[in-house]
C-alpha cells in the first residue's frame, strides 16, 4: 500500500530538480516518507531527495521500491497546475504508479514502473571546512558570468573569508566576490581557505529548478565534491558534484 497527497507545485519542483541530472529513479517509500538517491549516468553527480511524511496532506505507506522514468513524470508534472492537489498511488497488481491531479476536474495518469531496484546508494558523509548560505538567484547569476569565459568554474574561499566564484579562459577571466556584507549571503561559516573546480553545465543543472529566493547551503573544501542543499517546502534536496582535479 502506498498513497500520498501533496500540493502539485512542490512535487513538480522536486521532479524538475531531480530530472535535470537523472533519467530514472527509485523512490524508496515507507511509513516515514519518500527517499531517493541516484547518480547521473556519468557518475559525476549524485542527487538525494528526502520528502518526510509530514510534507504530505495524506500519507499511508508500507515499504516499497517504486522505480520510475523521470522524463515521463516530468512531462506529467509539467501539465499540473499550481492550485492542484496530487495524489500518488501505487497499483501493485498492474505494476503502475497512478498520479491523480485534482482541482476543478480530476485528471488521472498512470506510469509503468521500472525495475530500478533500490541501489542502496548512500550519500557519503563528508566533513566540510566551509559552508556558504546564499540566495540561489545570486549564485546562478555568478555562474552565468563564469560561463562567459570557460566551461568550468572554481568555487573558492579566500583567506580573508570571501566566497569567490572564479573562472579563467585562455584570455579572459571572470570573478564574483561575496563577503559577509553582501545581501545575498545569509551566512558564511569558514574555517580555512579552499578551492575546488567544477563543470559549469552540472552546476547549472543542479540549480536550474531553484527560485531566486531559495536559500542554498553550499559546502566547500579543497579538491572535494561540492555539496549543495536546499528545501522545497518540507522536502530536502541534496546534490553532490565531483570536482575537476589537476
Amino acid at each position: 500500500m502506498f498513497k500520498a497527497t501533496i500540493n502539485a507545485k512542490d512535487f513538480k519542483k522536486i521532479i524538475d530538480a531531480t530530472s535535470n541530472l537523472v533519467d530514472e529513479i527509485c523512490f524508496e517509500v515507507d511509513e516515514n516518507g519518500i527517499k531517493a538517491n541516484a547518480m547521473d549516468p556519468s557518475h559525476v553527480a549524485l542527487v538525494s531527495v528526502n520528502i518526510p511524511k509530514d510534507t504530505f496532506e495524506e500519507y499511508i505507506s508500507d515499504v516499497h521500491d517504486i522505480g520510475v522514468d523521470l522524463e515521463a513524470l516530468k512531462k506529467i508534472m509539467g501539465r499540473a497546475k499550481s492550485n492542484e492537489k496530487l495524489t500518488l498511488e501505487l497499483d501493485e497488481e498492474k505494476n503502475k504508479l497512478n498520479l491523480i491531479l485534482k482541482n476543478d476536474a480530476v485528471r488521472k495518469f498512470s506510469v509503468s514502473l521500472y525495475d530500478v531496484s533500490s541501489t542502496n546508494l548512500k550519500v557519503p558523509d563528508i566533513e566540510y571546512p566551509n559552508e556558504v548560505m546564499i540566495k540561489a538567484g545570486a549564485f546562478v547569476e555568478a555562474l552565468k558570468d563564469a560561463e562567459l569565459v570557460n566551461d568550468h568554474v572554481s568555487l573558492k574561499i579566500s583567506e580573508d573569508g570571501k566566497f569567490i566564484i572564479f573562472s579563467k579562459g585562455d584570455i579572459n577571466q571572470s570573478e564574483t566576490i561575496y563577503d559577509n556584507n553582501s545581501e545575498s549571503i545569509l551566512d558564511l561559516k569558514i574555517t580555512e581557505s579552499s578551492k575546488s573546480t567544477f563543470n559549469l553545465a552540472y552546476l547549472k543543472d543542479i540549480t536550474k529548478a531553484t527560485s531566486s529566493d531559495d536559500i542554498l547551503h553550499i559546502y566547500l573544501g579543497s579538491d572535494m565534491p561540492v555539496k549543495i542543499e536546499y528545501n522545497i517546502g518540507n522536502a530536502k534536496i541534496l546534490f553532490l558534484l565531483a570536482p575537476r582535479i589537476e
Binding site: M39, V44, P225, L240, A242, I245, E246
Partner: peptide, 14 residues
C-alpha cells in the same frame, strides 16, 4: 589541465 573525477571516488574515503 584539470580532469573530471567521479563521485564514487569519494565514497571509498568514507
Amino acid at each position: 589541465k584539470n580532469k573530471q573525477v567521479k563521485i564514487e571516488d569519494f565514497f571509498k574515503v568514507n
